[in-house]
């Protein structure tokens, strides 16, 4: 691979990571003023802000690698659904608090493992972003872990809702461990994380937490994929409509 190809591939990879971060951030931020109580409302917004910060670092870096004068805002606000390459789990609607927490648990466990590897990336910027994010993720996981226990091992109603959420989201977790040709090249170059290798540890950790919460680990009976190639659920278009409206209505607006 030539240096230009490598740079181009890294740009696409970094954009994926930015897409995951911004879409999840937006979904969590939808809880603003809808949280179950004030402290939880604030906690969710803080987590959303951490993901937004990651998105900004990734998009800024992607724009720099591309070198065509685009900015983080162009990446966030001026790309359509098919150009977004986030994992589908991040775009699913928040549904109820149990769904939000189950997704957070799956993603937080994944991120603790993923970022730990990204720290070793030969790409200095990716390693630097990981060094910041890995510390924040420890706080995120402790919270989603506690909530999973509280809801799973709570009332009959909270247990049922949590189990439904785990069952409904399970088929979207497999995509987190897919490695395509682009990522394979970058893994060989020491830049990307080999996420396929993280699945056994992820499964072990998630199984332990779900079991502790008296929840049942679902069977692997169905799988949905497509986010990395731009094939999304119907939910992403609606999310982008809301997220991008202001910027598209008033291009370049600042305050």
């Amino acid at each position: 691979m030539t240096e230009t190809d490598l740079k181009q591939a890294t740009m696409q990879y970094v954009t994926r990571l930015g897409d995951d971060s911004i879409i999840l951030s937006h979904r969590i931020s939808e809880w603003c003023s809808n949280g179950p109580f004030l402290e939880e409302d604030l906690a969710l917004q803080n987590v959303a802000l951490d993901f937004l910060g990651r998105a900004r670092m990734y998009f800024t870096y992607a724009a720099e690698l591309e070198g065509e004068g685009r900015t983080e805002d162009d990446f966030a606000y001026l790309r359509d659904e098919r150009q977004y390459t986030n994992l589908l789990i991040n775009e699913l609607p928040r549904v109820d608090f149990a769904h939000t927490m189950a997704r957070q648990l799956f993603v937080d466990v994944f991120n603790t493992l993923f970022l730990q590897q990204q720290l070793q990336s030969k790409d200095e910027t990716l390693a630097a972003v990981a060094a910041k994010a890995v510390k924040e993720t420890r706080y995120h996981l402790r919270r989603s872990h506690e909530w999973t226990l509280r809801l799973g091992d709570g009332t009959a109603e909270s247990h049922q809702r949590m189990q439904n959420a785990v069952d409904n989201l399970w088929g979207y977790t497999h995509e987190m461990f897919d490695v395509d040709a682009l990522e394979q090249q970058l893994i060989e170059a020491g830049i990307a994380v080999d996420s396929a290798a993280l699945r056994p540890q992820w499964l072990e950790k998630v199984t332990a937490i779900l079991t502790e919460a008296t929840l049942t680990v679902p069977e692997d009976s169905w799988v949905v994929r497509g986010g990395r190639t731009g094939y999304h659920t119907e939910n992403l278009g609606h999310l982008l409509t809301e997220m991008q409206f202001l910027h598209r209505a008033h291009p370049g607006v600042t305050w």
Binding site: E39, L42, A43, N46, D50, E136, Y139, R142
Partner: peptide, 13 residues
């Protein structure tokens, strides 16, 4: 501790 996250990302309540 009342909450892991406070008024800003850097604080707990």
């Amino acid at each position: 501790r009342l909450s892991e996250f406070g008024s800003t990302a850097c604080k707990a309540l």
